[in-house]
Amino acid sequence: MNDIERFADSSPARLGRGKKGKVLSDAWFSVLLITPAMIIIFFFALYPLFYALNFALRHVDLTTAVGVGPLVGLDNFRFALNDRFFWHATKVTLIFTIAAVSVEMGLGIGIAFLLYQVRWFKGVIRSLLLLPLATAPAATGLIWRHMYHPDFGVYNYFLSLLGLPELNWLGSINLALPSVIVFDIWQWTPFVALIVLAGLQSLPREPFEAAELDGASTWQVLRRLTFPMLSPVLTLVFVLRTIDALRLYDAVYSLTSGGPGTVTETLTYYLYRIGLKFFRMDRASAIAFLFLYVTIVFSGIVLRSLTRAQSERARRL
């Protein structure tokens, strides 16, 4: 028996409850709490997943007479791994994710620290920062397309005012992906900043006061205290942002439609074409599972230390 149960057994509440004196154990109580969420997840997340798995193992060509065809084993996975456009899309997705998420994390943390130290207009600034986030990428992507336009766009107008050469933001094969990344940074940096700020504000004061008494330098405080204590929040934001950046779709759709050529064709956009233009759900599902596998492995590694620490914390209680 661990501490929880010992505590639970001896608690006066336990003794006083229930007409028949029969009370749920802590274990059942905790399971009861997660049951509604688990039912929803099991039915509406796992059922479609099994559905997709079924597709991935069959020959499925929905717009032809084949329909949902016979089982073909791992053929679809083999197809995906041999498909060089799949690898191209993977590369684009990785470049996008690494660039966007690292800038968003860096800039977001910077903004969070800035706001933390600011004294006036904090609430106003925070609300204003929420604005890019509050716009649908399907809509603001189009607005940005307008702003990026080489002939009529406002960004090129600024460049021309400064006497700089005008750029073909979304049309040049070298600039298109960075332009999409800038859009993502615009939209998601505030998300990082606001959550990190929330984390900063919830840090306990005492260790910092003690450090100051010891005459620790700002750098030492940051390295020894602030970042270690913030690390759960940072890890969480990092993982959430990475998962969503890997799945980027709306922004690509409205900004570039994957173009020019295939320069900004991310994995999910490629998937979209295979699944909903060609209706080859077998191949689309297989790619989706490869994608899921890689994402799980990645986030598993990143989150392992976090979940372990959390588990230990809970166990200590």
């Binding site: 997943l49 999910t268 998937l271 699944g275 909903l276 989706a288 994608f291 986030s299």
Partner: peptide
């Protein structure tokens, strides 16, 4: 972690299901 992983599956692949 399992719950988080349900967010990782690309939406496009589950739209048809």
């Amino acid at each position: 972690f399992f719950i988080l992983s349900t967010r990782m599956f690309p939406a496009i692949a589950v739209v048809i299901p």
